Amino acid sequence: MAKDFYGELQLGILGGGQLGRMLIQEAINYNVNVHVLDPDKNAPCRKLCNRFETGSLSDFETVYNFGKDLDMITIEIEKVNVDALEKLEEEGVIVYPQSRVIRLIQDKGLQKQFFKQNDIPTAPFQLISTKENLYETQIAFPYMQKLRRDGYDGKGVKRIQSTQDIESAFEAPSLIEELIDFDKEIAVIVARNDRGEVATYPLVEMEFNPEANLVEFLISPSILSFEIQVQAEEIAKKIANDLQIVGLLAVEMFLTKDGQILVNELAPRPHNSGHHSIEGNVTSQFAQHLRAIFNLPLGSTAARSNAVMINLLGEAKYEGLAKYDGVEEVLAIEGVFVHLYGKKYTKPFRKMGHVCIVNDDRDLAIKNARLVQEILKVKA
């Protein structure tokens, strides 16, 4: 950046959840002044930033007024008012990732079209306007219907098995895509700065909670074949360069049973699939995001050890003031790191924290992670 920003830069974060919280923990190391906007007055960031403002992320005036006196804005969630960000960019506020990137990624239909236009492998798809379009489609049953906007954490996705399911399908503009018979869900996080430097994190393998459709268990680094790992990392680099993004990009992919890699979707920010990097890699994803948006040299993404990440989700039958059972017990296990997000209330499947388990012995890391899953519970 043009100015000497250490201790001077006024950085705004749209969103005050756990991603913003962990980003602030890294930003403190640069003496950056952090301002946060979030609709929840009790958001996890509220006590960690220099200024916390309560307000809508989707309201033009709120986002514009929040950002107009800042040097730079970044995001921890894509559902923000892009028109306001465009105006701020026009007035000289730096927005990373760029507003045009956020606009594209907000719409899963535009994402898919971007993949097709740039020869990025993805599942066959079709865009529809209303659920009536589902009675005449080019994609055969069964298929997945995904809302073009506002779907996240497993929401906004339906499996359509037959014409009987169409009545309960989403009415809003959607995309439908061929149901992929995949072997694994995998992800690569890639960073790119304004100099065009690009760095990828080692490929990770993920397991999803079948009830909530959330990442529940992640293993890094992958032990898939070298060819698969290289191919996945090259796809992520290509997407980052094609987008000319500045910042971090999570690329979620399917590995099919016949060995193909298909890109599922993108997130232009720190992501659940990179939480292990705090303990598991030389440079955490949060430190890397800051390096990228500050146009600093990107850090090493090398794995320090085998790392397993578990999402700490609210138990299914509990809602209310959060209570954590088993914290002391799991902290007695070597290589266990607990991250609680500061959320006052729990509800079923709400992300309340994560745990990273590291060990030079991969099998032991996985064994200890399964043990942590059994012991540590979020109740009310």
Rank of each mutant, 00 (worst) to 15 (best):
E178Y: 04
E178K: 14
E178V: 10
E178G: 04
E178F: 05
E178I: 11
L179R: 03
L179G: 01
L179Q: 09
I180K: 00
I180W: 02
I180V: 15
I180G: 01
D181E: 14
F182I: 03
F182C: 00
F182R: 00
D183Y: 05
K184Q: 13
K184L: 13
K184A: 11
K184P: 00
I186S: 10
I186Y: 00
I186A: 13
A187F: 05
A187C: 07
A187L: 06
A187E: 11
A187G: 08
A187Y: 06
A187R: 07
V188H: 08
V188C: 13
V188G: 12
V188T: 03
I189Y: 02
I189W: 04
I189V: 15
I189F: 03
V190L: 10
V190S: 07
V190K: 09
A191K: 01
A191F: 14
A191R: 00
R192Y: 02
R192Q: 12
R192S: 06
R192E: 07
N193H: 04
N193S: 03
N193A: 06
N193V: 08
N193L: 09
N193F: 03
N193Y: 01
D194S: 15
D194Q: 13
D194H: 11
R195W: 06
R195T: 02
R195G: 02
R195D: 13
G196V: 01
G196P: 03
G196L: 12
E197F: 07
E197D: 15
E197Q: 14
E197W: 00
V198G: 01
V198R: 07
V198M: 03
A199C: 08
A199W: 02
A199V: 15
A199M: 09
A199G: 04
A199Q: 12
T200I: 04
T200F: 07
Y201C: 08
Y201K: 05
Y201L: 12
P202M: 14
P202H: 13
P202E: 13
L203G: 03
L203H: 05
L203Q: 11
V204N: 08
V204E: 05
V204C: 13
E205S: 08
E205D: 09
E205W: 07
M206K: 04
M206H: 05
M206P: 02
M206T: 14
E207M: 06
E207R: 13
E207P: 08
F208H: 12
F208G: 04
F208R: 03
F208Y: 14
N209H: 15
N209I: 05
N209S: 02
P210A: 10
P210W: 07
A212C: 09
A212S: 15
A212K: 00
A212G: 01
N213M: 14
L214P: 04
V215M: 15
V215H: 00
V215G: 14
V215E: 11
E216M: 11
E216V: 01
E216S: 15
E216I: 01
F217W: 10
F217R: 08
F217V: 00
F217E: 01
L218G: 06
L218Q: 10
L218M: 14
L218D: 05
I219E: 06
I219N: 07
I219M: 07
I219K: 14
